[in-house]
Amino acid sequence: MTGRVRAGLSILAVVFTAYLAIGGMVWTGRVDMPAIFVAALVLYLVTTWLCIFWEAAPRTRRGGEAVLQRSAPLPVWACVFALAATAVIPSATWYSVAEAARLESFATWTLGGVGALLTIVMVRRRPLVAWAGVVMLAAASSAWIGPVNALTLGAVGAAVWVGTAQLLTGLVDRAALDTAELTEIERRSSEWLASQEGRRRERRVRVQQALALAGPVLTRTIESDGRLSAAERDEARLAEGALRDELRGPRLLDESVRAKLHEARRRGSIVTVLDEGGLDGVSEEALERIRGHLARALEGAASDRIYIRTSPHESTAVTVVGRSHPGDDPGDEEVVDLWHEIPHEPAAISDLDA
C-alpha cells in the first residue's frame, strides 16, 4: 500500500469517527450526567485516533523470497487501551443518559463508534483483540438495552464491519504478496536478460579479437594453400598463443601484459595463461595493479616454459612460474628459474616492487 493511499485511508477514518462522535453530541433526549457523556466521547476519539496513527509506518517483511511492505501491528499496550475503552465507553454513555433516552440515536452511537474502533484494531492486525471487543460490546449493549435492541441497533453491524475488515485485510495481504513475488520474478528475469546480453557482448568481443589476431594468418594460410614460410609459421604460432590467452585468462590481460607475453614468445618461451578463479569480486582498480605487477614480472623473462595462473589462496592473486632445462640436453630435468607471487593487497605489492 502506497503512502498516499495509507494517508487517505487514515484521513477517512478520522473523519468518519469524528462524524460518529458529533452524532453523539446531538442530544434529542435527557442527559442526566453530561460530563460523563462528554468524557466518553473524548475517550473514544483519543483511543480511536491513537489506534490509527500510533506506529502506523509500514515495515518491510519477507514473504518467502519476496519483500513486501505491511503496516505495523498495533502495540500491545494500545490493544489493552482499546479493550478498556470498549468496556468503558458504552456503559458510561448509557449510564449518563436517562433510561427513557437510551434507545435514542445519540445514546446508541456507541454501537457504531466502538464498532469503528474495533474495525481499526482489526486493520492494525490484531484480530483476536478486535473479536474480543465485539463480544464485549455485544455483552454490554445487551445488558443496558436488551439483546434484541442491541442486535437491531448496531451490534450486528459492528460484527459485520470487523469481519469485512478481516476479509479485506487478508485479501490485500495476499495481493501484496503476489505483487511482491511478481516483482521479484521480474527482477530476476531482468537480471538474467542483462547477464545474457553481457555474455553476448563478451562473445562478440572475443570473436572480434579472434578475427583480429588470427584473421590475417588464416587468410594467408588459405591463399597459400597451407604453404607458409618460416616467418609466417612463427606469426601463426604467436597468433595462436595470443588467442589462447584471450580465451583462458582475459582478466589478466591489458596492453602491457599482452606485449610482454608476445615478447616472451618471440624469445622462444612457451607461455600458458590460465584464469582458474580467485579473482572473482576483485575491483577493476585491484586488477589494474595486479596486471601492472604481472607485466613487470614478465619483463625479460626467458624461461623455456612460463606458467601464469590465478591462485585460489586468499592472499595470493596470481602465481608466475618459469621452468627451463639447465643444459643443452632435452632429457635433463627442468628447474624453476622464475617464481613470482602477486598478492591481493596493494601494500604487499609495493613491498615486492621495492
Results as ranks from 00 to 15, higher is better:
residue 112 G to C: 07
residue 344 H to T: 02
residue 210 A to D: 00
residue 262 H to V: 02
residue 327 G to H: 12
residue 99 E to A: 15
residue 4 R to A: 15
residue 353 D to N: 07
residue 107 A to Q: 11
residue 156 V to A: 02
residue 223 E to C: 06
residue 306 I to G: 05
residue 206 R to C: 06
residue 232 E to P: 06
residue 65 E to T: 12
residue 2 T to V: 04
residue 139 A to P: 00
residue 77 W to G: 07
residue 124 R to C: 01
residue 231 A to T: 15
residue 186 E to L: 12
residue 76 V to T: 15
residue 74 L to A: 00
residue 78 A to L: 11
residue 101 A to D: 15
residue 182 L to N: 15
residue 137 L to I: 02
residue 339 W to R: 14
residue 306 I to Q: 01
residue 221 T to A: 11
residue 191 E to I: 06
residue 303 S to H: 01
residue 12 L to C: 11
residue 14 V to E: 01
residue 65 E to G: 13
residue 154 G to D: 02
residue 88 V to W: 10
residue 154 G to K: 05
residue 136 M to I: 09
residue 103 L to P: 09
residue 192 W to V: 11
residue 182 L to S: 14
residue 5 V to W: 11
residue 134 V to G: 03
residue 229 S to D: 02
residue 282 V to Q: 08
residue 142 S to K: 00
residue 69 Q to S: 13
residue 237 R to G: 02
residue 90 P to L: 04
residue 278 G to F: 02
residue 2 T to D: 08
residue 17 T to H: 10
residue 87 A to D: 07
residue 279 L to M: 00
residue 135 V to D: 04
residue 26 V to S: 09
residue 6 R to I: 03
residue 112 G to P: 08
residue 309 R to P: 13
residue 85 A to P: 10
residue 75 P to S: 06
residue 144 W to T: 15
residue 17 T to D: 09
residue 93 T to N: 13
residue 167 L to P: 12
residue 38 V to T: 14
residue 123 V to I: 04
residue 40 A to D: 10
residue 290 I to V: 05
residue 15 V to K: 09
residue 331 G to I: 13
residue 203 R to Y: 07
residue 15 V to T: 12
residue 233 R to P: 04
residue 256 S to C: 00
residue 172 V to H: 13
residue 29 G to R: 11
residue 338 L to Y: 03
residue 309 R to S: 12
residue 116 A to P: 08
residue 353 D to E: 12
residue 241 G to W: 00
residue 283 S to G: 10
residue 281 G to W: 10
residue 58 P to C: 05
residue 117 L to T: 02
residue 253 L to W: 10
residue 239 A to R: 02
residue 228 L to N: 01
residue 237 R to V: 04
residue 44 Y to D: 11
residue 172 V to D: 13
residue 343 P to T: 02
residue 254 D to G: 01
residue 53 F to K: 03
residue 192 W to S: 14
residue 277 G to F: 03
residue 111 L to G: 03
residue 99 E to L: 14
residue 29 G to H: 12
residue 56 A to D: 06
residue 311 S to P: 07
residue 310 T to G: 02
